[in-house]
Amino acid sequence: MSWGKYILGALIVAALVHFAAIFAVPRVLMNVAMERIGAAGANVWHTTGRVTAASRQIVRPSPDFAYSACVFDLSGGPVIITATPWDDYWSLSLYGANSDNFFVIDDREAHYGAEITLVRKGTANPEGASMVVESPSARGIALIRRLAPSPSTYEAAARIAPEDVCASVAQLTN
């Protein structure tokens, strides 16, 4: 029996599985994060309370930030995302299904808050939208970070978080 073809076959399978696993890791981890954050539904902001030792949704959370997270889903059309301004550092960042941070805006650029219209890459931009951002994937995560290292600043940040919007255009027009 010639073992060469079996060894070659095993090596080809190993290479395919290796690259598939490397490719899949960020997507699987993002899916897990989206399942956890978006358990109550997509296109809505979720606040998780101040980060403590019990915060185990996403690795390496910072206890110095007040986080708001939204799983966006563009399958029903564009999604409007707004971030209410904050006295100290804040940012709005968007992550694709492969975990890439494809967009970020902070208070240096948006003193009065941010409002974006998120569309799927390759689709037509909605008319009249002021800031259109193209997402490389249909689903992903939007994250607002507000610097709030003390209990009092966290409470203040938590009070303005309900003013943020994450909703499909269809939701808003209905």
């Binding site: 076959g9 090596l11 190993a14 599985v17 290796h18 696993a21």
Partner: peptide, 15 residues
């Protein structure tokens, strides 16, 4: 067996 070994090797090498 060869395919099984390949899958195992691929996963271990990725890890």
């Amino acid at each position: 067996a060869a395919i099984g070994a390949g899958v195992l090797l691929g996963l271990v090498s990725a890890w």
